[in-house]
Design a protein around this nucleic acid. Structure first.
Lengths: 237, 237
DNA sequence: GACAGGTAAATTGGATCCAATATCCAGGCA
DNA sequence: TGCCTGGATATTGGATCCAATTTACCTGTC
């Protein structure tokens, strides 16, 4: 859904949270894991908007647990730069800014070509078919949330054979972080078909096994997205 | 210590007060922060070796706090991949492996050239002088711990003007992670003078403002270190 | 003698309780 | 009137307490 920074009452957001909560409850071994995963998703999806205060008591009540699992989850999210702690004042969802957007862009522009270069020689026909399918799904998709997810899966599919779990985790983490920013752009400017052209070109280069061309496309893709976002954020800064 | 009562403007005295406060505050704001910082250092320095079990009760006693700050600190370190949680079985210091070493090497090889390229145009004469000084100190240093610290500071000095806090944090994090591995190499194989040659070459390229050459050196430097480590780790199974 | 089962000890995960700190508001004073 | 000061309140940080799970050991049987 579109999200002009919270024009909705807080209890409406809590209701959205409740949906996320009930759905995934039994899949985790400990409450901390569960809360951490749910809150990460909520932040990345924009259910919890940037700057939103995170009252431990309220969150505990929403999740049906005590404050302690909430506290541990918040600490993990802090280490991932998704929430900020202010001692004795509480935690808030990490703010977004043009500078941070550029920062994430620089990181992606460095990591993703590396992942692609490692992965490309080992990509299977199935991988490429899946990537093509994801592009097609994106053509039909209008919801920004689903769109971000498809975009992420498309990129990760191409990187998936890199055989470097730690590198891939970093890439996915920053792809998700970028998604969080992209939501703004989608909501305000609509979807960019130009991005789809680049996806097609990228897939073609991967099919041809042309690592240099593919990496070039990825870098341009990332940098251009970053600049667009920075300009957009500066404009409303 | 005492000063002539009112010979100076009030804001000067306020500034001095701020300095005094800042200096007397290596004391942390919260116990969790303190424990987290101490344990991170302990793991990176090798005081807590890989695979070591982390009993919450023992750590709490060692730090003179209750189990709760320890638990929160452990969660943060988990998010940074320095400790591993096994539900209901406890946490252990993250294991090291040849694969993980290669993983870290790939990440460094991607991030550090990017940081250097952004930073290089803004490096000052002071920065370069500091870097040269750190190389000289490394020549005289024999302790592996101090050596790692100097090496880290040398690299970070060259990257410090990148103006991308998030990127720099990632670089430093993986530089530290690599240090943890390097300790083994230092201990078993002794120090490598070849690395110092590369440091000199890197500094020279930076002085000359030659980004391509500097990045090339960094990449070779990182990759070579990674291969050496992987071979070493493979060798001891 | 070895293995299965069950029980007890140890340790973690989670809840509750208390203390410390920041914010907010009212009232006094220049 | 404006600012500073003091206290009330809400919220976090930390300690203690209880429950759930795992592991190890012990015992009994085959």
């Amino acid at each position: 859904m579109s999200q002009p920074p919270d024009s909705r009452p807080p209890d409406a957001r809590l209701a959205d949270l409740a949906v996320l909560i009930a759905r995934n409850r039994p899949r985790f071994r400990t409450a901390t894991e569960f809360v951490e995963a749910a809150m990460r998703e909520a932040i990345l999806e924009g259910v919890l908007p940037a700057g939103a205060p995170l009252r431990q008591e309220d969150l505990a009540a929403a999740f049906g647990v005590s404050r302690m699992p909430v506290r541990e989850a918040l600490r993990q999210l802090e280490a991932r730069a998704l929430v900020e702690f202010h001692p004795h004042r509480g935690a808030v969802v990490a703010e977004i800014s043009a500078e941070d957007s550029a920062d994430i862009g620089a990181i992606r522009a460095a990591l993703e070509p590396a992942a692609l270069r490692l992965s490309l020689p080992h990509l299977t026909a199935d991988d490429l078919a899946l990537a093509a399918e994801l592009i097609a799904e994106m053509d039909a998709e209008t919801d920004p949330g689903r769109m971000g997810e498809l975009n992420r899966r498309f990129h990760m599919t191409l990187y998936s054979r890199a055989g470097r779990p730690r590198l891939l985790a970093l890439v996915e983490q920053h792809l998700s972080a970028a998604d969080r920013y992209l939501r703004f752009q989608f909501a305000a400017l609509g979807y960019h078909p130009r991005s789809q052209d680049e996806h097609h070109a990228l897939l073609a280069a991967c099919r041809a096994g042309d690592a240099d061309a593919a990496c070039g496309i990825v870098v341009r893709h990332v940098i251009q997205a970053g600049e667009q976002l920075s300009a957009f954020l500066d404009g409303r800064g």
